[in-house]
Nucleic acid binder design. Sequence first.
DNA 1: AATGAATGAGCGTTCATTCAT
DNA 2: TATGAATGAACGCTCATTCAT
Lengths: 195, 195, 195, 195
Amino acid sequence: MLFMPKIVDHDRYRKELLKKCFDLFAQRGYGSLTMRQVAQEIGVSTGTLYHYFPSKEALFLQLIEEITQQDTSISADDIQGVETIEERILALGQFLMEHEDYFHKQTLIFINFFQQPELEQEPIIEAVKRSNQRYQEAIMQFLGIDNPAIANHVSCLIDGLISQRAFDPESVSIKGQMELLAQMLSAYLDNQPIS
Amino acid sequence: MLFMPKIVDHDRYRKELLKKCFDLFAQRGYGSLTMRQVAQEIGVSTGTLYHYFPSKEALFLQLIEEITQQDTSISADDIQGVETIEERILALGQFLMEHEDYFHKQTLIFINFFQQPELEQEPIIEAVKRSNQRYQEAIMQFLGIDNPAIANHVSCLIDGLISQRAFDPESVSIKGQMELLAQMLSAYLDNQPIS
Amino acid sequence: MLFMPKIVDHDRYRKELLKKCFDLFAQRGYGSLTMRQVAQEIGVSTGTLYHYFPSKEALFLQLIEEITQQDTSISADDIQGVETIEERILALGQFLMEHEDYFHKQTLIFINFFQQPELEQEPIIEAVKRSNQRYQEAIMQFLGIDNPAIANHVSCLIDGLISQRAFDPESVSIKGQMELLAQMLSAYLDNQPIS
Amino acid sequence: MLFMPKIVDHDRYRKELLKKCFDLFAQRGYGSLTMRQVAQEIGVSTGTLYHYFPSKEALFLQLIEEITQQDTSISADDIQGVETIEERILALGQFLMEHEDYFHKQTLIFINFFQQPELEQEPIIEAVKRSNQRYQEAIMQFLGIDNPAIANHVSCLIDGLISQRAFDPESVSIKGQMELLAQMLSAYLDNQPIS
DNA sequence: AATGAATGAGCGTTCATTCAT
DNA sequence: TATGAATGAACGCTCATTCAT
């Protein structure tokens, strides 16, 4: 391949750098983070950073795009012998606990993204919305639910859990809330008329 | 009034300025907001801004302190003829819808506060946590609930609603979720053994 | 006097304020001193300060003008029973020691004045030079010397003493140097041919 | 050179910049000189200036430290065929005249240094005093004098000459004063009892 | 006459970005 | 490709000065 020699390597390295930026943007925020800090923390010079990303804005937008394209879904391993909806909700809780830090940071970055009106949001804003929808659909599918209101309920609850625990992790427990949700949902579904 | 001559006016004006800053910090974020922008948007010069606040950091911290001390609770008017828990939850939804914008912005500011490690957070961090607790207690009291897990459930749900709607207001409806919550909660409580 | 009612008072107060500024300008320097500092240290508001002086520059120039017009000469009391040139030089040393602080500060202010090229120096620069000449003449007269080279010698020595002691008061003693000067001068004058 | 790769260049350039600052600080004074002016006059951008000096204060202190470490002593060339103390004093005068401008500026900078109480003076103040002592010792050694009072006399005279000529170069001549000093000193030393 | 809140130009400093090596 | 020195616009903040009271 004469004409596409190292593009792959270049692109692969770019994504590695993006990965290393994830925590930084989540922890400091776009406006409070400097390119020097980014360069230093991910272990390159500013020159190299600019070699892979034309600007701070582009770096941030590429980071968000990368996040929206990641598929952090429940793996087959997590569903071993999970049958009832109660079990599935508890498995969901387990999954959340394992990825809490990642979800929290992703939320911070999305929020931050919407706070920067001078950024060229439009090309990406739809991707973010779609990413959110995909999460919700994944939840519905995993729980075997087809009622969108319930799916919303679950996903809002998860969102709220993540963000409340960000302020104060001791204020609420994921496991406890998932158990309560399982019970409430069971009671609610049992009460429903056969449709 | 011989003593305390103009302190009141100075302090009153300071709080007026703080109020005008609320939207700005929520919409842009601490790091992306400049003091020139603040000054211009609230209609004073930078000099005047610094006459009332010794630094950008102090301005932000005072804003947060002011927020934690505000008491945006459900007024008596909202509870006219509200008896059952279902009615109360719907009234809560109504209240949320009326103050959604405020709650959303408050959340953004708090999140932003925790993202700035170089700020002197300690003196205020407890006030923020206490403010969050007060909200939860207010919900419990209003709903007549004494089970903290349920209170957590409701407050997480609200939090999640607010933040999901921030991304995309059409993705989920407050009214719908409150109706669902009322039904789930009724079903759950009816199923509970008499304790 | 209907038409000159309080000018005198106004002018007298202005000069009082100038007096209070003397130490400040000497200790901090024109460029490092702010009008707020001046106002606070001399116990008035900035508004009042500007009521008496149209600008910082004018304040400084008036201060220098005032200094050049002051006549810190050796008083009659200091010359009681002083006859020989040795006695006179020692009396001069005594006088210097008593006013060392004032002379040091005056020197600082003059130096500082010449360091500010943006100031309107011309109207005053001559007054400063004349003031310096007057000092020298006073020394000549007091010592009974009519040889200008010797007068220059004495005045340079004094100048150098003052400024070396400003850096480090223990590096050289006024009394010791005046005693040495007396001896050197005697030896020199005795050696001179009768002219 | 594997270790210490570009430190030398960086440091060398830093000292070049310091050298270019010398005149500026002497002519304007610390408080009246802005970093923009410095940058412009020495031909770099403000960014570059801050690349070499962390702050205005550090720049000034490094300048003073550099001055104290310089060794502007009388070179061997100046002492050709200088034997008697009279000849040595005249040679000293010649040396002074050649370096008058430098000495004058150094004095201005030192005075200015002591006028800035907010500067971190302590680490440097001793260096300045030592530098002054070294000058004095150099004078003593050059003149072949071991009487410290006479050394003080000469150094005060020089100091005074430099500063009086700063106000008005025509008020006093270096050559004339050195000739007078030579005569006075000869007369004084001849009169001394043999010790 | 006296005050001090208000102003905005300008200060010290930092930042995203460029470019010679 | 990778570096980090260089740039100058823009930041947080201060200052001389004005003006309503």
